[in-house]
Each structure stands twice: as structure tokens, then as C-alpha cells.
Amino acid sequence: MNKESLRLINAFFYSFVVSFSPIETLFVLPIVIVLLHEKEFVWGIFKKLIVLNFFIIVLVVFVLFQDPLQAMELFMRTNLILLFNIALFYQSQGYDIARGLDRLGFAPKIVSVTYFAISLIDALMRDFKETQKSLKARGFRANTSLFSYQTYGNIFGMICIKAIKKSHDRELTMQARGFEDRIFFLTSNQLDSFEKILFLSIVAVLGKVIYELLG
């Protein structure tokens, strides 16, 4: 078990417990622990949470007309999970997720696709931003027209081909190094006290939920 894999386990268990059990005050405990650990980024984390709430609000509003209590619970539940996961992975670059999946015993092909996809996402985003800049310089303004949609289609096509070429080059390099379907990671972070305390807090939450269910 390494730091990254325990982080994934924490995310899954917390989301699972909060998704399927009655709301408890104790659900806030793991969030407080994560937010204390990420205290420098609290503003950014809440900003992200507010943006993501636009998607949830639509569903909550519909439920609100039929069952206000359910709507409130839905809002609380989804926000608790979102806040926990956003805070937990706020500083993640993605590669730690690939390492975590590898340590958890996920299929090597999934780990490889995750690793390659993360490296390609950076390249695709860079390519898209550059293309956007050059379109702006040529006076292109996106609007509701066939021309705009054609431009977007062509941009997607272009970045797709660039990504395929990059990915193919990478594949050849990997094959030259003897890659079959598995990536071996050299670095692995040891468990630290934060991950352990967080895990214990989630176990406490789970214990409370089970106790309530049985009691």
C-alpha cells in the first residue's frame, strides 16, 4: 500500500458511505481533516465546488417541487462527496492516480492507458489553446453558425491527429524499451500520517453508520 493507493481507497469509501447512508454530522470529519491539510488552497477548492454546483442545482430544483426534504438531502450528499474529493485531489497532476491504480492491482492495460492519457491531456490542451490564440488573431469569433461548428470540428480533428502522432511516437519508444502492456513505476510515496488519519476517520464514519443501521 502506498500513499496514492490509500488516497484512492479513501475517496471510494467516503463517497460510498455518504452516497448510500442517511446524512450524519460525522460525515464532516474527514472533510475537515482534508481541508486542514490543504488549507492554502481552501478558496480554490470552494470556488471549484461552486462551479460544479451549477450541474447539481438543476436536479435539486426538480426534486424540490416534489419533496423539499429529499432535495435538501440530495444537495447535502452530493456536495459533501464533491468537497471531499476535490480537496483530496486538488493538487493532483494525475500521474499519482496511475501509480495508485497500479498498486491497487488494476489491469496493467488500464494503468498504461491512464498514464498515456494523462500525458496526452497536457499536450492536447496546449495544442487547443495555441489554435484558439491563432484563431483569435485572425478575428474568429465563435457563434451559432455552421462555420463555427466546422471550425471546431476541424480543430478537434487536428488535435486528434497530433495526439495520435505523439502517442504513436511514444509507443515506439516504449516498445524499444521492451514495453508489452505494463508500465513499471520507479517512484512510490510511502504512507504518511495524513493519509492514515484520514483513513481512520473514514473507518470511524463507516463504523457509526453500521452501528446506527444495526442499532
Binding site: 492507458v113 498515456f116 492519457a117 494523462i118 496526452l120 491531456i121 488535435i159 495526439a163 495520435i164 504513436h168
Partner: peptide
């Protein structure tokens, strides 16, 4: 695997 990674990245982006 490489084309699958490209599609995955494209979906994300």
C-alpha cells in the same frame, strides 16, 4: 493502447 489513450484524452479535453 495508444489510440485508446488518445480517445481517452480527447474525451477528457
Amino acid at each position: 493502447i495508444s489510440l485508446t489513450s488518445v480517445a481517452s484524452a480527447l474525451f477528457f479535453v
